[in-house]
């Protein structure tokens, strides 16, 4: 009886040792996939809402909103976003210059869009013409209401804009023929997938080149 009891105990332990890890593994497989899908949802949703936030900020500027604005917990559907409109001075035609920040944070994900906005001064009634450009994004969890974080973003974006200035100057300094020739000279070091159409692509780049 003792021997049979021992065998039975061994069998039960063996069953437990086999099935419990299998159960744990399977439950993790299923729930990890759902977690990853939810993470993707948070990532995409935060980007979409931040972009919508930028559009709502521009809309507010078109409505002649002026001065520093720090608007928090604005709602789009069930998701909230924050807006900061930071005046940065006036332009040559006395338009109000702004840095516009829009942020959406979902779960552990944050998405921020920053752009320049120029609010032209019209006759007193809105809608006011607003021009937006150089929109820049970051997934770093900055706080758009904190001066230090705002400055950090302005600096990072500024560095990228300096790079843009350099490429613009390069394009302006070349004639279309020179520009296209420089591009075609790079063909040999391109990946195989790009080589076949590179002359057509270079033609399009030549058309898009800045003249002045």
């Amino acid at each position: 009886m003792t021997r049979r009891r021992g065998i039975a105990l061994f069998l039960v332990l063996a069953l437990v040792a086999v099935f419990v890890p299998v159960l744990l593994y399977l439950s993790q497989t299923g729930s990890s996939q759902v977690r990853q899908a939810m993470k993707f949802h948070e990532v995409q949703q935060s980007e979409s809402v931040a972009l919508s936030g930028t559009n709502s900020g521009l809309c507010r500027l078109r409505g002649n909103l002026t001065g520093l604005q720090q608007l928090s917990n604005l709602l789009l559907g069930d998701t909230s976003y924050d807006l900061t409109l930071k005046p940065t001075g006036q332009g040559v035609v006395l338009q109000n210059l702004y840095h516009l920040f829009s942020r959406c944070a979902l779960g552990r994900h944050s998405y921020i869009l920053m752009s320049d906005a120029e609010q032209l001064q019209p006759d007193p009634d809105p809608p006011v013409m607003v021009i937006s450009h150089d929109t820049w994004n970051t997934v770093e969890p900055y706080d758009i209401n904190l001066a230090a974080d705002v400055t950090a973003m302005e600096n990072l974006r500024g560095q990228d804009l300096l790079g843009f200035e350099a490429t613009k100057n390069y394009e302006r300094g070349k004639t279309p023929a020179q520009y296209e020739s420089d591009l075609l000279a790079k063909q040999s070091s391109l990946p195989q997938e790009l080589k076949a159409d590179w002359s057509s692509i270079a033609g399009v780049l030549k058309e898009e080149k800045l003249q002045f």
Binding site: G163, A166, T167, P191, E193
Partner: peptide
């Protein structure tokens, strides 16, 4: 954003999407 020329291309042999930078300069 910087004005650099970027390409994403699909490599069917390796089943990958690769990225390359063609300097605009």
């Amino acid at each position: 954003f910087n004005g650099q020329i970027i390409s994403y291309y699909h490599e069917s042999a390796t089943r990958q999407i690769r990225r390359c930078v063609i300097p605009n300069g």
